[in-house]
Design a protein around this nucleic acid. Sequence first.
DNA 1: CCGAATCCTGTTTGATACTG
DNA 2: CAGTATCAAACAGGATTCGG
Lengths: 113, 113
Amino acid sequence: MKSTEAACQYELMAARDALEVIQGKWRIPIVISLTYGTKRFGEIHRDMPDISPKMLSQELKSLEENQIITRTLYDRMPVTVEYSLTPLGQSLQNLLVELRNWGKHFRKEIVGK
Amino acid sequence: MKSTEAACQYELMAARDALEVIQGKWRIPIVISLTYGTKRFGEIHRDMPDISPKMLSQELKSLEENQIITRTLYDRMPVTVEYSLTPLGQSLQNLLVELRNWGKHFRKEIVGK
DNA sequence: CCGAATCCTGTTTGATACTG
DNA sequence: CAGTATCAAACAGGATTCGG
Protein backbone atom coordinates (compact mmCIF):
# COMPACT_ATOMS: atom_id res chain seq x y z
CA MET A 1 0.00 0.00 0.00
CA LYS A 2 2.88 2.34 0.69
CA SER A 3 3.97 2.57 -2.92
CA THR A 4 0.44 3.05 -4.17
CA GLU A 5 -0.03 5.94 -1.80
CA ALA A 6 3.22 7.52 -2.87
CA ALA A 7 2.22 7.32 -6.53
CA CYS A 8 -1.12 8.82 -5.64
CA GLN A 9 0.54 11.71 -3.85
CA TYR A 10 2.79 12.35 -6.83
CA GLU A 11 -0.12 12.41 -9.24
CA LEU A 12 -2.05 14.70 -6.96
CA MET A 13 0.81 17.15 -6.83
CA ALA A 14 1.22 17.30 -10.59
CA ALA A 15 -2.50 17.71 -11.05
CA ARG A 16 -2.52 20.52 -8.52
CA ASP A 17 0.21 22.36 -10.37
CA ALA A 18 -1.80 22.21 -13.55
CA LEU A 19 -5.09 23.07 -11.92
CA GLU A 20 -3.64 26.14 -10.28
CA VAL A 21 -2.94 27.60 -13.68
CA ILE A 22 -5.91 26.56 -15.77
CA GLN A 23 -8.63 26.37 -13.16
CA GLY A 24 -11.61 28.60 -13.29
CA LYS A 25 -14.57 29.24 -15.48
CA TRP A 26 -12.82 31.29 -18.14
CA ARG A 27 -9.15 30.46 -18.46
CA ILE A 28 -9.50 27.36 -20.61
CA PRO A 29 -12.09 28.93 -22.91
CA ILE A 30 -9.73 31.86 -23.41
CA VAL A 31 -6.88 29.54 -24.35
CA ILE A 32 -9.16 27.66 -26.74
CA SER A 33 -10.14 30.92 -28.36
CA LEU A 34 -6.49 31.83 -28.86
CA THR A 35 -5.82 28.41 -30.33
CA TYR A 36 -7.30 29.80 -33.51
CA GLY A 37 -4.65 32.47 -33.71
CA THR A 38 -3.70 35.86 -32.37
CA LYS A 39 -6.69 37.88 -31.32
CA ARG A 40 -7.55 41.24 -29.89
CA PHE A 41 -9.46 41.84 -26.68
CA GLY A 42 -12.73 42.45 -28.48
CA GLU A 43 -12.32 39.39 -30.68
CA ILE A 44 -11.88 37.12 -27.69
CA HIS A 45 -14.87 38.77 -26.14
CA ARG A 46 -16.96 38.01 -29.19
CA ASP A 47 -16.06 34.32 -28.87
CA MET A 48 -17.42 34.32 -25.32
CA PRO A 49 -19.94 37.12 -24.91
CA ASP A 50 -20.91 35.99 -21.41
CA ILE A 51 -17.71 37.13 -19.78
CA SER A 52 -17.57 40.64 -18.38
CA PRO A 53 -14.77 42.95 -19.50
CA LYS A 54 -13.46 42.94 -15.98
CA MET A 55 -13.18 39.16 -15.80
CA LEU A 56 -11.66 38.93 -19.25
CA SER A 57 -9.04 41.50 -18.37
CA GLN A 58 -8.34 39.80 -15.08
CA GLU A 59 -8.01 36.31 -16.51
CA LEU A 60 -5.85 37.48 -19.40
CA LYS A 61 -3.54 39.05 -16.87
CA SER A 62 -3.36 35.83 -14.90
CA LEU A 63 -2.58 33.80 -18.00
CA GLU A 64 0.10 36.27 -18.95
CA GLU A 65 1.69 36.03 -15.52
CA ASN A 66 1.83 32.27 -15.87
CA GLN A 67 3.40 32.68 -19.31
CA ILE A 68 0.57 30.97 -21.13
CA ILE A 69 -0.11 33.96 -23.36
CA THR A 70 1.65 37.13 -24.45
CA ARG A 71 0.20 40.61 -24.59
CA THR A 72 1.38 42.99 -27.27
CA LEU A 73 0.46 46.65 -27.29
CA TYR A 74 0.43 48.51 -30.60
CA ASP A 75 0.56 52.23 -30.10
CA ARG A 76 -1.73 53.08 -32.91
CA MET A 77 -4.92 55.02 -33.01
CA PRO A 78 -7.15 53.59 -31.82
CA VAL A 79 -5.11 51.59 -29.33
CA THR A 80 -4.71 47.95 -30.29
CA VAL A 81 -3.72 45.03 -28.09
CA GLU A 82 -3.07 41.54 -29.35
CA TYR A 83 -2.97 38.33 -27.39
CA SER A 84 -1.45 35.05 -28.50
CA LEU A 85 -0.33 31.75 -27.06
CA THR A 86 3.23 31.19 -25.95
CA PRO A 87 4.90 27.83 -26.60
CA LEU A 88 3.88 26.90 -23.08
CA GLY A 89 0.32 27.84 -23.90
CA GLN A 90 0.46 25.76 -27.04
CA SER A 91 1.71 22.83 -25.02
CA LEU A 92 -1.78 22.72 -23.51
CA GLN A 93 -3.15 21.39 -26.78
CA ASN A 94 -3.16 17.69 -25.88
CA LEU A 95 -4.89 18.48 -22.64
CA LEU A 96 -7.49 20.61 -24.39
CA VAL A 97 -8.16 17.90 -26.95
CA GLU A 98 -8.79 15.39 -24.20
CA LEU A 99 -10.99 17.85 -22.36
CA ARG A 100 -13.09 18.46 -25.43
CA ASN A 101 -13.30 14.75 -26.21
CA TRP A 102 -14.47 13.96 -22.73
CA GLY A 103 -16.96 16.79 -22.84
CA LYS A 104 -18.49 15.33 -25.98
CA HIS A 105 -18.48 11.87 -24.45
CA PHE A 106 -20.17 13.15 -21.32
CA ARG A 107 -22.82 14.96 -23.31
CA LYS A 108 -23.65 11.81 -25.23
CA GLU A 109 -23.75 9.65 -22.12
CA ILE A 110 -25.52 11.90 -19.67
CA VAL A 111 -26.68 15.25 -20.86
CA GLY A 112 -28.23 14.03 -24.06
CA LYS A 113 -29.65 10.75 -22.82
CA MET B 1 -13.59 33.28 -41.00
CA LYS B 2 -17.05 31.95 -40.52
CA SER B 3 -15.94 28.33 -40.32
CA THR B 4 -13.15 29.10 -37.91
CA GLU B 5 -15.52 30.80 -35.56
CA ALA B 6 -18.00 27.96 -35.74
CA ALA B 7 -15.29 25.46 -34.88
CA CYS B 8 -14.22 27.63 -32.00
CA GLN B 9 -17.76 27.78 -30.67
CA TYR B 10 -18.06 24.03 -30.88
CA GLU B 11 -14.83 23.47 -28.99
CA LEU B 12 -15.87 25.98 -26.38
CA MET B 13 -19.13 24.20 -25.82
CA ALA B 14 -17.52 20.79 -25.39
CA ALA B 15 -14.96 22.24 -23.04
CA ARG B 16 -17.71 23.87 -21.01
CA ASP B 17 -19.55 20.58 -20.65
CA ALA B 18 -16.44 18.98 -19.28
CA LEU B 19 -15.49 21.88 -17.05
CA GLU B 20 -18.91 21.96 -15.47
CA VAL B 21 -18.35 18.48 -14.12
CA ILE B 22 -14.70 18.43 -13.14
CA GLN B 23 -14.15 22.05 -12.23
CA GLY B 24 -13.20 23.06 -8.77
CA LYS B 25 -10.39 22.62 -6.37
CA TRP B 26 -11.21 19.12 -5.21
CA ARG B 27 -13.08 17.08 -7.81
CA ILE B 28 -10.13 16.03 -9.91
CA PRO B 29 -7.97 15.16 -6.92
CA ILE B 30 -10.80 13.00 -5.63
CA VAL B 31 -11.07 11.17 -8.94
CA ILE B 32 -7.31 10.66 -8.98
CA SER B 33 -7.45 9.21 -5.52
CA LEU B 34 -10.15 6.77 -6.58
CA THR B 35 -8.10 5.79 -9.62
CA TYR B 36 -6.16 3.61 -7.25
CA GLY B 37 -9.22 1.60 -6.37
CA THR B 38 -12.28 1.63 -4.20
CA LYS B 39 -11.82 3.65 -1.07
CA ARG B 40 -13.69 4.71 2.01
CA PHE B 41 -14.32 8.29 3.07
CA GLY B 42 -11.44 8.30 5.51
CA GLU B 43 -9.04 6.79 3.02
CA ILE B 44 -9.76 9.51 0.48
CA HIS B 45 -9.38 12.02 3.25
CA ARG B 46 -5.96 10.67 4.10
CA ASP B 47 -4.88 11.17 0.49
CA MET B 48 -5.81 14.84 0.72
CA PRO B 49 -5.76 15.98 4.34
CA ASP B 50 -6.36 19.61 3.43
CA ILE B 51 -9.97 19.11 2.51
CA SER B 52 -12.59 19.51 5.21
CA PRO B 53 -15.07 16.69 5.80
CA LYS B 54 -17.81 18.99 4.64
CA MET B 55 -16.21 19.75 1.31
CA LEU B 56 -15.25 16.13 0.77
CA SER B 57 -18.81 15.04 1.41
CA GLN B 58 -20.18 17.78 -0.80
CA GLU B 59 -17.87 17.07 -3.71
CA LEU B 60 -18.40 13.33 -3.49
CA LYS B 61 -22.12 13.98 -3.76
CA SER B 62 -21.63 16.16 -6.80
CA LEU B 63 -19.49 13.52 -8.48
CA GLU B 64 -22.08 10.91 -7.69
CA GLU B 65 -24.84 13.03 -9.21
CA ASN B 66 -22.82 13.33 -12.40
CA GLN B 67 -22.32 9.57 -12.39
CA ILE B 68 -18.56 9.80 -12.09
CA ILE B 69 -18.45 7.74 -8.91
CA THR B 70 -20.69 5.34 -7.04
CA ARG B 71 -21.42 5.36 -3.35
CA THR B 72 -22.07 2.05 -1.63
CA LEU B 73 -23.31 1.84 1.92
CA TYR B 74 -22.54 -1.27 3.93
CA ASP B 75 -24.81 -1.65 6.89
CA ARG B 76 -22.25 -3.04 9.20
CA MET B 77 -21.04 -1.86 12.54
CA PRO B 78 -19.49 0.62 12.34
CA VAL B 79 -21.15 1.91 9.21
CA THR B 80 -18.94 1.69 6.14
CA VAL B 81 -19.23 3.62 2.91
CA GLU B 82 -17.21 2.84 -0.18
CA TYR B 83 -16.63 5.02 -3.19
CA SER B 84 -15.43 3.90 -6.58
CA LEU B 85 -15.25 5.12 -10.14
CA THR B 86 -17.97 4.34 -12.64
CA PRO B 87 -17.04 3.54 -16.26
CA LEU B 88 -17.72 7.19 -16.98
CA GLY B 89 -15.34 8.15 -14.22
CA GLN B 90 -12.74 5.80 -15.60
CA SER B 91 -13.14 7.42 -18.99
CA LEU B 92 -11.50 10.47 -17.45
CA GLN B 93 -8.18 8.65 -17.41
CA ASN B 94 -6.75 10.09 -20.63
CA LEU B 95 -7.65 13.55 -19.51
CA LEU B 96 -6.06 13.02 -16.13
CA VAL B 97 -2.88 11.69 -17.69
CA GLU B 98 -2.61 14.79 -19.84
CA LEU B 99 -3.33 17.00 -16.88
CA ARG B 100 -0.59 15.38 -14.86
CA ASN B 101 1.85 15.51 -17.76
CA TRP B 102 1.22 19.16 -18.29
CA GLY B 103 1.54 19.83 -14.59
CA LYS B 104 4.98 18.25 -14.60
CA HIS B 105 5.92 20.16 -17.71
CA PHE B 106 4.78 23.42 -16.18
CA ARG B 107 6.71 22.79 -13.02
CA LYS B 108 9.88 22.14 -14.97
CA GLU B 109 9.41 25.21 -17.15
CA ILE B 110 8.18 27.77 -14.68
CA VAL B 111 7.91 26.75 -11.08
CA GLY B 112 11.29 25.13 -10.86
CA LYS B 113 13.22 27.50 -13.07
C1' DC C 1 -15.41 5.76 12.36
C1' DC C 2 -18.29 8.19 8.71
C1' DG C 3 -20.30 11.43 7.84
C1' DA C 4 -24.71 15.40 8.12
C1' DA C 5 -26.29 20.02 9.57
C1' DT C 6 -25.57 24.70 10.73
C1' DC C 7 -23.48 28.90 10.83
C1' DC C 8 -20.17 32.12 9.38
C1' DT C 9 -16.54 34.44 6.48
C1' DG C 10 -13.74 35.96 2.70
C1' DT C 11 -12.83 35.43 -2.04
C1' DT C 12 -14.64 35.11 -6.69
C1' DT C 13 -17.62 36.56 -9.99
C1' DG C 14 -20.65 39.66 -12.20
C1' DA C 15 -23.55 44.03 -13.93
C1' DT C 16 -23.02 48.45 -14.99
C1' DA C 17 -21.06 52.66 -15.97
C1' DC C 18 -17.14 55.19 -17.20
C1' DT C 19 -12.20 56.62 -19.12
C1' DG C 20 -7.92 57.47 -22.30
C1' DC D 1 -10.81 49.85 -28.67
C1' DA D 2 -9.29 48.13 -24.45
C1' DG D 3 -9.85 48.22 -20.53
C1' DT D 4 -10.87 50.33 -15.03
C1' DA D 5 -13.98 51.57 -11.00
C1' DT D 6 -17.56 50.56 -8.16
C1' DC D 7 -20.85 48.09 -6.00
C1' DA D 8 -23.53 43.86 -5.29
C1' DA D 9 -24.29 38.87 -5.51
C1' DA D 10 -22.80 34.26 -5.41
C1' DC D 11 -20.07 30.77 -3.91
C1' DA D 12 -16.20 28.28 -1.89
C1' DG D 13 -14.43 27.00 2.17
C1' DG D 14 -13.81 26.64 7.37
C1' DA D 15 -15.28 25.78 12.34
C1' DT D 16 -18.09 23.57 15.06
C1' DT D 17 -21.48 20.54 16.55
C1' DC D 18 -24.25 16.50 16.17
C1' DG D 19 -25.93 11.47 15.07
C1' DG D 20 -25.73 6.42 13.75
